[in-house]
Simulated assay, not measured.
Amino acid sequence: MSRRSYDQYCAVARALDAVGERWSLLIVRELLHGARRYTDLHADLPGVSTDILAARLKQLEAEGVVARRRLEPPASATVYELTARGRGLRQVVEALAAWGLDTLGEPRPTEAVRQHWFTGPVVS
């Protein structure tokens, strides 16, 4: 997958180069709750394909937003977690959540809902 860039010497453009692809900030939202296995991320991001999730995680890792870590036995699982740079996106995600709160209303019949989307670090 070729990498797209705005090719602008602008902090907003550079930030969007790093996290502006579809699903990237939702992955960050999930990781703000703590380290997660790939399967858990996939389960809590309904609608994302496995190819796109893998590509976004790889891109976020290359940007220094996400780190992959192997848990010690008996878990022996690989988890993804935010780096310090990634945790710096907390205020951005919280601001987007606050901005979008007025538009929620009642869930549509086709919309997925997860309880942790309404608790924890991104609730305003």
Rank of each mutant, 00 (worst) to 15 (best):
T50S: 11
L32V: 12
A77R: 14
E21R: 11
A13C: 15
I27W: 06
Y80H: 15
T78C: 04
L32E: 08
A35L: 02
I52K: 12
R56Q: 14
D17M: 07
L41T: 03
R29L: 10
P73K: 12
L32P: 12
G20Y: 00
H33E: 02
A77K: 12
L25S: 03
V79Y: 02
L31D: 02
S49H: 03
V28Q: 07
Q59L: 13
H42G: 00
K58H: 12
A15G: 13
R56G: 07
R68E: 10
S76E: 12
S76L: 09
L16P: 00
E30R: 15
D17F: 02
L26W: 11
G34S: 06
L57E: 08
A43D: 14
L45Y: 04
H42L: 15
R29W: 15
R22Y: 09
R14C: 03
A43V: 07
E30M: 13
R68F: 00
V48M: 05
P46S: 06
V19C: 06
Q59G: 10
E63T: 04
R37C: 01
E61H: 09
A43L: 11
T78H: 07
R14D: 13
V28I: 15
E30W: 01
A55Y: 05
T39F: 01
A67H: 11
P73T: 09
V28K: 04
A67M: 07
A35I: 00
I27S: 09
K58T: 15
D17L: 06
K58L: 12
L31A: 04
R68Y: 00
L25N: 01
P74G: 06
L60M: 01
I52N: 06
A55I: 01
L57V: 06
T50P: 00
L32S: 05
D44Q: 12
K58R: 14
R37P: 00
D17V: 03
